[in-house]
Design a binder for these strands. Structure first.
Length: 640
RNA sequence: GCUGGCGUAGCUCAGCUGGUAGAGCAGCUGACUUGUAAUCAGCAGGUCGGGGGUUCGAAUCCCUCCGCCAGCUCCA
């Protein structure tokens, strides 16, 4: 007999080789049909695993992240079985769980149509009703290769040939056998709700040079309700899509006739941008940056020296030639900033020199990657380059990261992801310098209290970097802030300063952008706030509206007073009913609605309604002005 | 760029298997003068993304280009 404990506290004595599921059924019957797999001594196993020694078993359910992964992984096997039933010649490749659901890649003669998806989904439901067990089979690798060769599953053979172990595990579900590490749910009956979401092409092993396979994405749950909730959330997410809201709120447009990926800022969006720019300017001057302006194009020699023509050419707009000189539209601002540095002889006393610019750059992005404001071909970076001495590296990086975070917090962002990318295989600069720079980035992150992830080897060849991403409505991450160390450009452009000892030394350079690009930043802001911008960013802060024509004159006086107080106000004094005007203002997401009727005009007050909250009541004009000012000062650091 | 889907009025969308376009909102005009999320009536608005083809006839079928959406790849 062996003693088995559950992590939830129960324990009991069992025969050796009792299966994990039997143990759980005995000790904690309420978990039956809920437990997906078990963890024994830190490792995850199938429920059918026999227990061979005394141990503690931790049941894993769908509530656990790991449980979801297993559940969805098993769902992808079910999908593969369904596809094999519907399309006999389909070859299977890989099918992992993902963040929300699963996919499986198939090699098929023709692509899947939406009707095919329906058929496959129906077949999956059948398979779930059949309640087929997932059987684990361990075989020698050679035997597995032989098996998959017979089954003509070339991709599986290819994967097997790269596996080093002599023994591999297979999982059999119905007539479908897949090479798989496991673990899996006990049987297909556990999946009670399944929905196939989309198809797409995907390169075998993610390599553009390989054959394109057909991928099917799906989601599944242990009950119908979870699926319903999931689909509702998807719908909800769509409603906060910045492309939809941008159109509805008239913030920006991207017009086919003008060009893909080229953004037009409409008056209201432009207003927000202007507010952001003014704020940005002030913050940068306060932080010791010097603001500059540089041209949009530069001679090819510039880009040869910078290395862009050898490392970045495929992302640059094609050259233009006039008077025998070739020019390129700038994809980055750095070379220009470097020339500003070079415009004077620099002393060690001058450093750090911080040059900032809202620089508009153009990059060729493949048509398939364009995405609203998030990925465009022309955008304005809130760019800056900091030239420092070696002994200033740490401090300046810490300052810059803290600055970035502080700015993001003003915009209301509080949970972002921070990534620190370290030295890649191909890199320039000494190990020592890489270490100092990387260490500085890590220290800076710690100093500001950030949780960060290290991305090994993901740095640029010229230096390590720290990136801060913000998540959009559909949980896709977008990089906004970046602080990048550069050992390369100072060398290429032969930057120097005269040190205390009279010798010429090479400065280090830090590229940084806080918001990244104003376009992307606006996109992220729209989704984050669902279009309900905090007051300091609202293009219109208050709208004055009248109940009848009689109040027009008084209303105009009220508007004037708001304007004098520096509040962004507009008015709706037309002949429509007040209910209509209110509805309009609500859909336009105007924070404060000022209603003026007979009573208010008579008493010289205003009636105030707050968006989404309803009527606040009557007050003096000055009271609302004060309220607005106070709210404005908090910027995004308050939830509204 | 690749795979699939899609492109009809300013916006949101309808238009069955081919028979030369329709609604709501917005716009304009007029009436209504209204108390916190849609007052009524009338008018106007479209080379059905561009080009080519099949057909007696194309928004509808085919080809091609452009753009959009999802994903892949990329993202110095």
């Amino acid at each position: 007999m062996i003693e088995v404990c559950l992590s939830t506290g129960e324990n009991g004595l069992f025969e050796e080789h009792t299966k994990a599921e039997a143990v759980i059924e005995k000790l904690k019957p309420e978990l039956k049909n809920k437990v997906i797999a078990v963890r024994i001594n830190g490792k995850v196993f199938d429920l059918s695993t026999p227990i061979t020694e005394s141990c503690t078993i931790e049941p894993i359910t769908f509530e656990d992240e790991e449980g979801k992964s297993i559940f969805w992984h098993s769902s992808s096997h079910i999908m593969a079985l369904a596809v094999k039933r519907v399309f006999k010649d389909a070859k299977v490749t890989i099918g992992p769980p993902i963040d929300k659901g699963f996919y499986y890649d198939f090699d098929v003669e023709r692509t899947f149509t939406p009707e095919d998806l329906k058929k496959i989904e129906e077949e999956m439901k059948k398979i779930c009703e059949e309640d087929l067990p997932f059987e684990r089979i361990e075989v020698p690798k050679e035997e597995a290769i032989k098996l998959f060769k017979e089954l003509k599953e070339d991709y599986k053979v290819e994967i097997l040939e790269e596996i080093e172990d002599d023994k591999v595990s297979l999982y059999k579900t119905g007539e479908f056998i897949d090479l798989c590490r496991g673990p899996h749910i006990p049987s297909t009956g556990m999946v009670r709700a399944v929905k196939l979401l989309s198809t797409s092409g995907a390169y075998w092993r993610g390599d553009e040079k390989n054959k394109m396979l057909q991928r099917i994405y799906g989601i599944s749950f242990p009950n119908e309700k979870d699926l319903k909730d999931f689909l509702e959330k998807l719908e909800e997410a769509k409603s906060r899509d910045h492309r939809k809201l941008g159109k509805e709120l008239k913030l920006f447009m991207i017009e086919e006739d003008i060009g893909a990926g080229l953004v037009i800022w409409l008056p209201k969006g432009a207003k927000i941008r202007r507010i952001i720019e003014d704020y940005w300017l002030k913050r940068h001057e306060d932080a010791g940056y010097q603001l500059i302006y540089t041209p949009h194009i530069g001679k090819s020699m510039l880009w040869e020296t910078s290395g862009h023509l050898s490392f970045y050419k495929e992302n640059m707009f094609p050259p233009m030639e006039l008077e025998n000189v070739t020019y390129y539209v700038k994809p980055m601002n750095c070379p220009f900033h470097i020339y500003v540095y070079k415009s004077e002889k620099r002393s060690y006393r001058d450093l750090p020199i911080k040059l900032a610019e809202l620089g508009t750059v153009y990059r060729y992005e493949k048509s398939g990657v364009l995405h609203g404001l998030m990925r465009v071909r022309g955008f304005t970076q809130d760019d800056a380059h900091i030239f420092v001495r070696e002994d200033q590296v740490k401090e300046e990086i810490a300052n810059t990261v803290a600055f970035a975070i502080d700015v993001l917090r003003d915009f209301g962002f509080d949970n972002f992801n921070v990534y620190i990318s370290t030295k890649p295989e191909k890199a320039i600069g000494s190990n020592e310098m890489w270490e100092i720079a990387t260490e500085s980035l890590i220290e800076a992150a710690k100093l500001v209290g950030l949780n960060y992830k290290i991305e090994e080897g993901e740095g640029a060849f010229y230096g390590p970097k720290i990136d801060i991403t913000i998540t959009d409505a559909l949980d896709r991450e977008w990089q906004c802030s970046t602080v990048q160390f550069d050992f390369n450009l100072p060398e290429r452009f032969d930057l120097t300063y005269t040190d205390r000892d009279g010798k010429e030394k090479r400065p280090y350079m830090i590229h940084r952008a806080l918001m990244g690009s104003l376009e992307r930043f606006l996109g992220v802001l729209i989704e984050y706030y669902k279009g309900n911008f905090p007051l300091w960013l609202s293009p219109i802060q208050a709208r004055v509206m009248t109940i009848t024509d009689e109040q027009r004159k008084y209303a105009e006086e009220v508007v004037e007073k708001f304007k004098e107080a520096g509040i962004r106000v507009d008015s709706d004094l037309g002949g429509e009913k007040i209910t209509y005007k209110i509805r309009l203002a609500e859909t336009e997401k105007i924070p404060y609605m000022v209603v003026i009727g007979k009573k208010e005009a008579l008493e010289g007050v205003i009636n105030v309604r707050k968006k989404g909250k309803g009527v606040i009541g009557n007050m003096k004009i000055e009271d609302l002005i004060r309220m607005i000012k106070e709210e404005e000062d908090k910027k995004g650091r308050v939830s509204n």
